[in-house]
Design a protein around this nucleic acid. Structure first.
Lengths: 184, 184, 184, 184
DNA sequence: CATGAATGAGGTTTCATTCAT
DNA sequence: TATGAATGAAACCTCATTCAT
């Protein structure tokens, strides 16, 4: 139901997604949606909300738990790719601030700030323990996010969104080694 | 004329930008536009085209010319920030593939591939000369683009799109040092 | 049940009154109404019917009974104000022919004619007995109705529909003396 | 244009008048209306405004000018019937406060108060000069309005809105003599 | 070339009514 | 009988596009 809407929003963007098409995709009548959602805006907000909640929950469970910053980063990359696999384009709104022609609203913007702060904290830990290069933690977090977004976009355009495990591994190694101190 | 359209497209997104508003902003009559542009889509394509051409020209002149890969990368970062300063959100379409609710069309998609290949070539050179870490050049290019996009977005949201020269310098150093081999 | 509908019809007018709101007000389920009423129109007709019946019954009992035309008129004024107090806006439909965006239907239109004819008959009696000015009885009845409606509307707008007994008395004297022959 | 809207509003009431029907009646396209009126509400307000302005102008010219209260009242009755002839049901909104399922808004409500005060002033004059029965001027004005409304409604329902000159004359005499002092 | 009133298809939203439980 | 989720026709309104001036 929400997922039908997500599909159409992703396909067409917010403005070009019509209620009629969403209804058809969900095999409901047009009016039925208005028993569940106040408006098109409300529908969009709820779709986004579900995905963000899901991501935040998994982030807290899989990433924040870990003591070792390198493990945490590794888990974060895995999570990002997993979420991407489930929600493709849609969660770009969360990571890139705008997508599908819609802007994030207050609540989600705040969640995103929290997420970024948490990632920065992981970097701060890593630097302190001598595991990562000396970098401003916030800037490091920005770099990490940017790289992951770029790979998501790249594969979205080039491999139909399904990179081989092989490529995923190389990507992961490439990204992680941008931050880890090198021993030579 | 095109710049009025750009302003409105950026303000409202593609679908929410009305011809009437663009006409008002450009101080032309609605009908006049249809002497210059076949349609709203055509107008959008031409706006994008101008910006892309401008970027490609400056890329060739300021970046591709340079022999030293480190210099080239440095110049590229400068260029990206310059373009961002001139066209803000709009060129995100080029670098992030979708923005304002519109997708890139064939011709521009190809130009983007060429651009990325050129950046990859710079990395290839740099690796060969032992200036950069050993990395797949394409993946390195993807990482670079992603980081730059992330900073653009970050400042777009946090400093009104105008980072201080100080911050720009730190960013540049942060990004560049992600790729350069470290001597210790 | 009918009274819940009346409240909502008065609050919102016919078209803006929704079955859902009526159902909520009556603490019934939407579907339940369709076991009692064929349609929204039917519901409206039944609400109106109840009020008209009530008025006609009281008219016959309190007004038509009286032999003295002046007493009858006095009782009619009292009755009109009483009904107004009970049903406020709603009975305007009966006296003013249209209200709440609905027109009277045949049966009620006929009842209204009968009512007016009865009032005219009272005037005819009064004229014959030399109690009232010489006037066409129908025109006198029209004048009376019009004045009473006007006061109802006036108080509806100015005193929240609750004129003081003092004001009611003055009104009654004002209206009655429009018709009684004056001795001087 | 406005008159086409007036016709449809009168025929169907506000809610049941559709933009499509108004457009058809005016032989314009639906969208054309939205070049002249912000919304359906706005259209309604403008229709009402035109009629009210017209009435107020004629009231000031034909009624307020007169020195003799009896002449003034006589002119007022003529005016009311004239306006009624031009605008039928629609001006009922002004005199009866609600019709066609719409309420008067602030500005018009105020104008109506002014109108009623002016009529009351005429009565006050008439009473002072011994031409009218001793009555509270406001209550007299209310009575007058109510009677005129009642006749308008009566003829609207019974003679297709076109009473004969004969009947108009009787009505006028009937109404006027409700207020004039009788010599006997 | 320049204009801007006119167009009408198409979008979002409401709500009376039905029907399976 | 009672329920209320599902329906879809129909309403209001927008806006890209045309064309007569």
């Amino acid at each position: 139901m929400l997922s039908a809407a997500e599909r159409v929003f992703v396909r067409n963007g917010f403005r070009d997604a019509t209620i009629a098409e969403i209804a058809r995709e969900a095999e409901f009548a047009v009016g039925t949606f208005y028993n569940f959602f106040k408006s098109k805006d409300d529908l969009y907000a709820q779709v986004l909300d579900g995905i963000v909640r899901e991501f935040v929950a998994e982030f807290e469970r899989d990433v924040q738990q870990r003591d070792d910053p390198v493990d945490a980063l590794s888990a974060l990359i895995d999570l990002r790719m997993r979420v991407f696999d489930r929600h493709r384009e849609f969660f770009r709104l969360f990571f890139e601030q705008s997508a599908a022609g819609v802007k994030l609203t207050g609540r989600h913007l705040k969640l995103r700030e929290q997420y970024r702060a948490s990632v920065a904290a992981i970097f701060a830990q890593g630097v302190k323990r001598g595991l990562f290069d000396k970098l401003d933690p916030l800037y490091a977090a920005i770099c990490l996010d940017g790289m992951l977004n770029a790979f998501v976009r790249h594969w979205s355009a080039h491999e139909g969104g399904n990179p081989s495990p092989e490529r995923l591994k190389i990507m992961k190694e490439t990204v992680l080694s941008r931050f880890r101190v090198r021993r030579n």
